[in-house]
């Protein structure tokens, strides 16, 4: 919820740029799907709308053509379609989720893909 509120000013968890998957009844745990700034989105973008800056991949909304190839190809499935703007959206490592997580289950990685990604 904090992700969609912080990034889109919307109370809409469907816009969250991370996903917590419950695996029940067996094995009874949660998988955290979160962007590790791997850069696959930039590789597959046909118009080079996604570029890396300080270890974080950022989408240029003026360049994005809304083809959503990046959304489909994201290895963690944590990019979304912003249909009202016809652009894709992704994690910008703002850190809001890390700050609010009551369990310290999320943290910034030191050397994850040599980026500042959340793990």
């Amino acid at each position: 919820m904090i992700c969609s509120l912080s990034n889109f000013k919307k109370a809409a968890p469907s816009r969250a740029l991370l996903n917590i998957e419950g695996r029940f009844p067996e094995p009874g745990d949660y998988l955290i799907h979160v962007c590790d700034q791997c850069g696959v989105c930039a590789e597959v973008c046909p118009v080079e709308a996604i570029s890396e800056k300080n270890g974080v991949y950022i989408i240029d909304p003026d360049e994005c053509i809304g083809c959503y190839i990046c959304v489909d190809e994201c290895p963690h499935q944590v990019m979304i379609r912003l249909k009202e703007k016809n652009i894709a959206a992704k994690c910008i490592s703002c850190g809001e989720c890390v700050e609010i997580c009551p369990r310290d289950a999320l943290s910034f990685a030191e050397n994850l893909q040599d980026t500042g990604g959340v793990k």
Partner: peptide, 20 residues
């Protein structure tokens, strides 16, 4: 997949963080 209307998003977000 919809969103809920919030009267003052920024203030509600700040107050929510404070509450947590």
């Amino acid at each position: 997949t919809g969103d809920l209307p919030v009267y003052d998003v920024d203030a509600a977000l700040a107050k929510g963080k404070e509450a947590f």
